[in-house]
Structures are given as structure tokens and as C-alpha cells.
Design a protein around this nucleic acid. Sequence first.
RNA 1: GCCGACAUGGCGGAAUUGGUAGACGCAACGGACUUAAAAUCCGUUGAUCUUUUGAUCGUGCGGGUUCGAUUCCCGCUGUCGGUACCA
Length: 877
Amino acid sequence: MNRIPSLLAGQLRSFTLHASQKHLIMAQRRKQFPFDEFEPEWQKHWDEQKTFSVPNPGDPGFDASKPKYYVLDMFPYPSGSGLHVGHPEGYTATDIITRYKRMNGFNVLHPMGWDAFGLPAEQHAIKTGEHPRINTENNINNFRRQLKSLGFAYDWEREVNTTDPGYVKWTQWIFLQLYNSYFCEEENKAKPIRELEEKGLSREEIDDRRLAYVAETPVNWSPDLGTVLANEEVEEWRAKGHTVERRPLRQWMLRITAYAQRLIDELEGLEWPTGIKLLQTNWIGRSDGAEVAFTIDGEKVTVFTTRPDTLFGATYMVLAPEHPLVDQITTDEQKDAVEDYKRTCAGKSDLERTELAKEKSGVFTGGYAINPVNDEKIPVWIADYVMMSYGTGAIMAVPAHDDRDNEFANKFEIPIIEVVEAPEGNEDACFTGNGTAINSGFLDGLSTPEAKAKISEWLQENGLGQKTINYKLRDWLFSRQRYWGEPFPIVWRDGNHEAIPESELPLLAPELEDYQPTGTPEPLLSKATDWVNLGDGVTRETNTMPQWGGSCWYYLRYCDAQNPDAPIGTEAEEYWMAKNGNPGGVDLYVGGTEHAVLHLLYARFWHKVLFDLGHVSTPEPFQKLVNQGLIMGEDGQKMSKSRGNVVNPDEVVDLYGADSLRLYEMFMGPLEQVKPWSMKGVEGVFRFLARVWRLVMDTDQEGVWELSEKLAEANPTKGTNKVVHATIRKVGDDIDSMSFNTAISQMMVCTNELTKLEQIPVSSVVTLLHLLNPFAPHLTEELNAKLAAAFDSVKNEDLAGQEWPAFDEACLIEDEIEIVLQVNGKVRDKMFIANDAPKEEVEKQAMESERVQSFIEGLTVRKIIVVPGRLVNIVAN
RNA sequence: GCCGACAUGGCGGAAUUGGUAGACGCAACGGACUUAAAAUCCGUUGAUCUUUUGAUCGUGCGGGUUCGAUUCCCGCUGUCGGUACCA
């Protein structure tokens, strides 16, 4: 028995509790307050009463007079290992906001769902031969149970599952919107493809402009995963040990590049962390430069450069090894070397090319190009540090002012000509910044920006080039060869693709006899020959969509989850996704940083297309974004099974209750910050909740809980009111700024004060319960119900439906305040003085302080600074 | 390499617009209650010096602005995250 404390500390850390030990601990916990009895009851109550269901406009019970607030969590992938403690971190934060906003008179939309397509379910199917739906559903049931055991205020009637036929239907429908649209450059928006048909464009011309199009491109193919991957995904799967290689394949692409500029510009009005905005901006990677035409054997070759001002310093040219001109310009003497080099490059993926980037490599083609500014003949090389997929696949190399060119020129002994003079004091071997043009003919003496402008003008006038903008962002590779994803609503007829009629949606994948990968890039669905072949040579598209498809628009579906006629009804969309003066529809979106680029960029892209086509009313999906920080293991390392430092939320709920888990995760530190788990910390907040419990409840001689005799329907004293009202103010402010940790510490202060009282005013306790309710809903509802049963002054109604307490400024004003007395900036004394004492009086009293006197003795007072209500600083020397 | 964030007691972390550094919690120590323990309650706890009153130092390091800097500016160091030949 007496080994309990060490047993607690030790066993909880490793999480291999024997049933008997757990029972022992449970017995101890129960003594403090019976969370295990009342928590499930309140969860059942909320479920049965549908406490947190919110009606849509037009539904019975909808209150149009209330403003809306849409709080969104990043929905989880329901993995087999269940909830991780990282999930409840963000989910508790949004839950607090939800409950708080409800109490402040908002209609709050706070839904949950499942991002349920995905590779693990398919791999399970490969192993067992069982349809992935079965495993997916089991996992979802487990996740739902876990979330409900934490008492989250979700509107479960709006639950969404991306694999439901009723959801797949609309994901496919949105794909068809993309398929049937093109990007109009003049109006900078998507428009229906019909317009192009009306203009009489040919089929090929139209297909070339669709937002969803087919292209034969080099893709990232993973043989062991049996699928291709988006550029953005490659790194992740490689890190997990899968091989990814480059090979050309016919694939569906989404024209996200058309939106590159809007995706940058329209970040502006969003309340997102600046880091995330920057990440997206960098990912899109706009760079402003110029295209310049060089000539090789009378043939024009265009290069892209951001530094046209250094044109006079170009001493060689580099083409990407895949550049179409390479064969043409290669001389006979160089042919073998060039062919050789091309072959080595072709075998490497983009990634390998960059990974092995330590040392520059390249081969001279034997050809020469003419520099248009000075008619100099410069050698043309091929090198893998130039990518065919960016810019024009050709560069002018200025080794004096570009690090890469510099390294290359040094290695191959190519001349280096300085054309920009660095500002004084700069000692860089290769100066890449802004300076003054030299050795540059008509540009000499100009600053870099001036030189850029002048040369651009000159190039334009002479028909040799123009200003150009390039983006790093590539079109989005949208097809996968998996089974467990949305099939494309597309058929092939005579080598052309066409959409299937909307009436045939959803198009569901047929059951397969086995889910083994084909071992080739041939998609898994091609095994279902009956399904694929529609007769008359018409066949179905056998690729499926990536997991991102479903997660790109789930926040819209929540608004109108059951709608059979549209992805989202107009009225529901206009209410929940309303502008309210902001570009984004969802008021608050909380989730991890891992989605900073991919999901958030893809979702913004889809949303913009839907906006352009008139299906949604805001240009942006998410107004405010908050990233919760990672929760590390107790050892400060990332939680992982192999390290054995994973904390299972179920265990914590078992031992300390849902409220303790919720409260602890919020008390750990600022939401956005990375922080380590501490089981002792959980015990700390657990003790706090026990103290709140004991404010209301006490045990009689038999150890049975009964209402505390200290409670009284008495008026709180001034001191009690002060702390209670200070707490009302701070908790409200802190929830608004999402500083949950400090809100909790203030409630701890308040509880400690109330605990000290001989007679505890019921009204003060009830106020505290209101404030604590969003954080610890079970305990507070339970205590409130007990108080309501005993005292007439306590409203017999769920706290969840009550109003947030208002604070009274008058309670916070004090007659006397403490003033700090400093001499030369050092605190020497403190004094109490009337709140409204005039400055002169404060100064006078400060000078009368004996301690102050002793420190200024023998010195001349130069200055006295009085900060009202805070301090007096006497400057003397 | 580049971009970003961060740096405060033994630990997690507080600190309005520059104004008492260390709130709240953990851990530790002491006390009350108890046959004993647990639980609970009360107290101490940044460092150094001092018998006490108290003094000096202290927010990664070095400088600056200021009556006053954890907060603002300049220059470093370290940690974490992202990204990588994008011309």
C-alpha cells in the first residue's frame, strides 16, 4: 500500500500497468473525487439531449438572431493505433472555444469527421484479403469512442466520412467541376469549359486548358507502394524507407499553377501564423526576372535569369541535360561524353540529383552561344544543376555573382568576369548582393536595381527578351494507382477521356478478389475487368484520387452534411461560411504544422475554383489558423513506439479522468509550443480538480460524499469578489487570446482563495464553475447540478446552456494600491497609497520613506519619475 | 547553405503598451493530522554573502538606447522546425 506514490510515478511512465496495480491506483483516485462515475453519465446526457447539435438556417430551432462561429479541427486519419495525446491537444483547445462562444451567445458549428481513405487500410486489406472498408470502420468506431470519452462538444449529427458513398459522390462532383473548367488569364479566374466550346476551340485545345488534365510526365513511382506520389509526398515516404524512382507515366494533373499568384496574394487577409504564410509563399516560390534570347548556330535559345543586370558577366551557358537542343549543338568530338552524361542523369531522380549535389558535374557540348549584349562567344555546357522543369531549362552562367556558377567555373576553369562592384567592406569571394555595375558597357555605374530596369528595357526594345515571372510550384499530380481512394468519374472512348454523367455519381470501386499490387504502374482497379470494360471499346479510368481529395473540402460538407442534392446547400454555405468582412469562411482552424503546405495549399486551391464558379461565397476557406505544438514524450523525445514513450489517452482517462487530461493538455504551456509530457503534471491538475470538488463536496464519517457545510448563500466579501471578478476577466481574455495555460492558473488562484474561506459563498463557487466549464465540463456540470438541487439561488440548468458570467469593474477597484519605490532603478521600498492620490502627493510620500532617504543620503536628486499606480523612481547622484 | 521560431529557477512555464522577474503547477524540504503511511492542510524554496535588519548578483553571450530592458536596437552563440543547386 505505501508504495503507491513511487508506483504511480514509475508505472505510469512505462505504461505497462498490471490490472491489480491499476485497481489500487484507481481506489486512491476515487477517494479524491468520483470522476469515473459522473463523466460517463454526462457524456451520455450530452449524447441523448443532443446538447451540442446546432440547426441550420431553415431547420426547426434555428435562432437567426445569433451570430455564427465556425470552429474547425483538422479531422484525423483513423489509424489502427487509436488516438494519440496530440489529438486532444488541438481538440480541447477548439472545444473550449466552442463552449465559450456558445455561452457568449453564438451559434457554434463544431464538427468532427474522418479522413478515412489511405494506404494503411489498403495495406491491411493486402494482408488479410478483407475489404479495406471493414478495417476503416473498426478504426472509426474506436476513434469515435475515444473522442466521446473526452466529452468534446461536437455536433455528431454532422459527422463526415470521406469514404462514404454519399461523400465520395461530391468529391467526384468537385473533380468534374475542375475537369469542366479552364483558367481565364484575362479575368484571373476559373470559368466553365463551355465558353471555350462556344468559341469553337478544338477538342485538343480544350483538353489542354482544363484545370484537370492528362499529361505524360516524369513521375515519382514507388514500386513497393505500388503507386505514384506527388512531389510533395516523396520525402515523407522515402523517410519511411520506401523507394521512389522517376519514370514517365500518363497521369491526371490539376492546374494549381494557374492560381500561383492568387495563392500568394490572398494570404494577406488571413490571420495565419506568419511562419506558415511564409512557408506557403516560399513553396510557391515566385521569382521575378527576365528571359533573354541567346543564339546558338543562328538558333534562338532562351534563358531565364533573375539578374539580367549581370549579362555582361556571362562566361558560359548551361542547358539541362534533357534540353531538346542538346543533341543538335553537340559536336562530334563531344558526342560520346555528352551521351554518357545524359545517361547518368536520366537514371537519377530529381531528388538524387539534388542529394548528390555536393560536387558540381557537367560536360562541354562543343557548341557556343552568342551573348546578345556584346556578341561574345561563350561555351555551352550541360549540367544536372540546371533543371528542365524550371524556367526554360537553360541558364546563362555568371560565375562572378552566383555561387553555383562560381563553383562550376572554378572546377572547370571557365573565366570569371566581375560585373558588379560590391559595396565597401564586402569581402565575399563571390558577391551575390546588390552593388554597382562595372565592366558592363552602358550599364556601368548603375546600382543593381537601376541596371536591372535599364537592361530589361534594352532587351525589350531590341526584341531580345522580356520581364518574366517564374514559380517553383508545379501542377499537382492527382492520380494514384491504389484501390482505397475515389475512382475518377471518367471513361475513355477512342483514346479520349470524357466525364460520366452526374447521375452516375458516386462511382464506387468494385470489390476485388485480392488487393495485391500489380507490381507495375497499372492501377489496381484494372484487375476488375468487368467494371473497367463498358463495351464498344469504352473503358473506365482506373486511377484513383489521392487522400487529399476528400480532405480538400470536408469543412464545406460539415455545413450541410446530409444534403443529398449538393455538396453544400446555398443557405447553409452562406450562413456558416459567411464573410463577416473577412476573406475566409471558417472562423478558426486548429491543427498541426505538418499540413502547413500540402493540405492547406490544396484546400485553398479547390476553394478558389469553387469560388470562381460561384459555389462558395468566400475566396478563402480558413480565416484564422492556429498550429498546436507537438507533445513530446516524458524523455523530451518525439513520441514513438520504438522509444516506448508513447502516452495513451485511454490510460490517462482511466486513471485521472477526461477533465484531467483536457485540463493538463491546456495547462502544459502555450498551445503553439512544443512541450514534453509529464505524468506528474497530470497529477497536479488532477489535484486542482479535486480541490474544486471539495469546495462543494465533503465526506461524512462513513466516507460518503455530501454537500460541504461551509457552503452558504451569503454575499461574498469584497476580497472574495475581487478575486472572483479578476478571474472572470482574465479567463475570458485568455480564452479570446487562446492562452489557456494562464486562464487555468488564474482559476487555480481563485480556487485557492475560496478554499481558505470559513464560509464559502455559493454564488462565487457557481461563477467559478461557469468559468471552468469549457475546460472541465464533466466536473463542473456535476457540481452545478448538486448545488442546484440544494440551493434555490442556483439555476437548475446545464452550464452548457447558460450565459458566460459578466465581470464588474467596480469589484476590481481598490482604495489603496501598492507603489514600488525605486532609487536609481532599484527597488528600495514599497508603500500603500490612495488610488486617486495626485502625483505630487505620491512623490511627497515617496520622499518621506526612511529607506529611500537612506539611499539618497549625500546625493543630489536629479529627477523623480512617477508611473501612476505602479512606481516612483528617484534618480540621484 | 538559406528561411523561420525559440533561449527565464532543479523542471513545465508567468510577467499589460519598457515599470516589483520567477504567477500557477511539478519536484524538494519542514510542520500539522495519523499507531504508521497515503490523502489532505499549513509553511519554505533563483544564487551568493550575512547572526538579523539586509546587501550583491541574476532572464544564453557581448555591446547600445533609457531614470528604468526578460521586453527595444546592433553583433554573436546554441537548440528546434522547415527547405534545399529554382538560375
